[in-house]
């Protein structure tokens, strides 16, 4: 990217009335040998009576960032509070004192995540209290990343995903993936007789054959 060029990127955020917070944007060069510093910007926001208001970003690094809301829709959705638990495989080899736990989201909006606490040496899992917002029809995933060092000094990284599908009738979650979410929804719709046997079978075949989209809408 040369001075004068102004590439644009679209992101998406879901908020509720009265909500405040900030959007975080971070970037780094793909060339690990480059001495170009990382980019970071925070954009404070406030949802005022259903309208998202953005403040000026505070950016550091070689790139200036400006933001503006474009398309905005108001609809029904979910605010979900709960406990997310991730098992710690091979944690007996990890030094508990240096372990960090970070939670982030794609496709849905993470509202809060409890701060990390020191892990007990005998811990076999990590539980975080989280809150996220999803509008009807949205799908996304919440990433929990656990990083630390093994007793021999090697990096320990554990990534675990919780997949989410917000349907008008129910909120679905899965640790398996989007295919599992789609099948859960088909089964619930079939059990509630919202769809017929034929529609259920056609839907399952479409999901398993990959005919339906199973990706995350990037924020």
């Amino acid at each position: 990217m040369q001075p004068g060029q102004k590439p644009q990127i679209a992101g998406r955020i879901t908020t509720t009335a009265g909500q405040t917070g900030q959007i975080s944007i971070s970037g780094r060069t793909l060339n690990s040998n480059s001495d170009v510093p990382d980019v970071h910007a925070d954009v404070p926001f406030r949802n005022q009576k259903g309208q998202l208001k953005l403040s000026s970003p505070t950016a550091t690094g070689p790139v200036a960032i400006s933001v503006k809301p474009t398309n905005q829709t108001v609809g029904d959705g979910y605010v979900v509070k709960g406990d997310l638990t991730v098992s710690l495989k091979a944690v007996s080899n990890v030094q508990p004192s240096g372990v960090t736990v970070d939670t982030s989201a794609e496709g849905v909006t993470l509202v809060s995540s409890a701060p990390s606490a020191n892990l007990a040496p005998s811990a076999t899992d990590v539980t975080r209290s989280i809150t996220f917002v999803a509008s009807d029809g949205q799908r996304g995933r919440i990433l929990t990343q656990i990083k630390g060092k093994t007793r021999t000094g090697k990096d320990y990284i554990r990534r675990a995903y919780l997949y989410v599908l917000a349907d008008a009738n129910k909120l679905y979650t899965s640790s398996s993936g989007f295919v599992d979410l789609e099948i859960q929804k088909l089964q619930a719709d079939h059990d509630a007789r919202r769809i017929s046997d034929d529609q259920y079978n056609a839907g399952v075949n479409a999901v398993l054959s990959g005919a339906t989209e199973s990706g995350v809408a990037k924020q």
């Binding site: 590439p7 259903g50 998202l52 905005q72």
Partner: peptide, 13 residues
């Protein structure tokens, strides 16, 4: 009721 907003980021080197 939730608001879904598309935010356009413009970068300038």
């Amino acid at each position: 009721k939730v608001t879904t907003t598309t935010v356009l980021l413009t970068l300038s080197a």
